[in-house]
Nucleic acid binder design. Structure first.
Lengths: 189, 189
DNA sequence: ACTTTTTTTTAATCTACATTAAGAATTGAA
DNA sequence: TTCAATTCTTAATGTAGATTAAAAAAAAGT
């Protein structure tokens, strides 16, 4: 389990064996059942999660009860409610499991202390956050400038694995349309 | 000029005088005229810019020639094409000035070398990027779950200064509607 | 294997927002 | 100050995508 995370870190900022040991001590393993929550809207997000196996998602629920998915996290992705995790404030996102999922949990306080002990890990998270921001910007531009059909096609090429693992209504929620309309788009091949 | 940046950094991770000197050496001052480009789509973004005075924007142009604004940067904000700047790849964003604007430019290579010389600055940029990601996520959720009228109201309370400085069509572009429709929304008070 | 729950499809109707076009108001450069 | 360019408004018409409803298909739990 922890090996997956260490490999991922080593791919970005190689660690010594001692540093690997510190990482192993600070994270906590957990298995989530399908639909089990990691974090609920209204609470402060205590943990950022690294997915070892399975898939999580973060989403907001609007005033009409509709869900809007912000992020999917398949294996080797981090997920959290970034706002809540960083500001220590309650926020509006939920995080739950789409499938049975194994994760490693890192609390914000552990993360901050690790930044002082192993500056390489501050770099690791800086780089991940830069990448996430670039991806988020790209998504915003797509959303502002492309029609639903093309957003769907892009999603398929971007996340080919997810297409066969998660329900279509989740894809619809992520690209910002109703499941009925996605079904219609798909009927046009 | 450089004092503005140093103050901003000190508000997050206080520097020694020596470190302040290093920062001052690594940035370059520049004044941009209204409509002058800092970065053009198709090129690699060399610089990240800290706005001292004025306002920049980043935007993409879609296949029909319409502009979609990703970010405004008034005084004390950083702006760049994050994807291009980080990956050293040409990208799809333009950055130009909405008003005459004074900026400090930091190249990616200077930034990376500064991270080794002054780890505090890696922390500074890590924190800024975390905040930017949280804000970007919040925008995405708003975009997925709120109708245009409410997105406009939120924009007004979020950026009260900008409302009176930049053209309305830029606001429309940022919140994802046409200027005509924004005009109609405003007519309903 | 069976039953319930969840997901997907189809189709009719509806609406938020886009498009087009043209005039009015502002802004800015000389 | 004036003229040209840009921005804003209004209004008629068009459309991508939402809503509603109901049935078919698939998946999950027992």
């Amino acid at each position: 389990m922890v090996q997956n995370l260490i490999q991922h870190i080593n791919g970005i900022t190689p660690l010594t064996e001692e540093e690997e040991g510190i990482v192993a001590e600070l994270v906590r393993e957990k298995t989530l059942a399908r639909k089990q929550f990691l974090h609920r809207a209204g609470e402060v997000a205590q943990y950022s999660a690294f997915v070892v196996e399975g898939c999580l998602r973060s989403y907001a629920v609007d005033r009409n009860g509709f869900e809007h998915i912000l992020q999917f996290a398949p294996a080797n992705w981090w997920i959290s409610d970034m706002y809540s995790f960083v500001k220590n404030q309650p926020s509006e996102l939920n995080v739950d499991a789409l499938l049975e999922t194994k994760v490693l949990l890192l609390s914000r306080s552990c993360q901050l202390s690790i930044f002082d002990r192993i500056p390489k890990l501050e770099r690791y998270f800086r780089i991940l956050t830069e990448n996430a921001l670039a991806a988020s910007n790209h998504r915003t531009i797509n959303y502002l400038s492309l029609p639903a059909k093309i957003r769907y096609e892009k999603f398929c090429t971007m996340y080919p694995t997810l297409i066969n693992t998660i329900p279509q209504k989740s894809v619809a929620s992520y690209i910002g349309i109703t499941p009925e309309f996605l079904s219609k788009l798909r009927a046009e091949f």
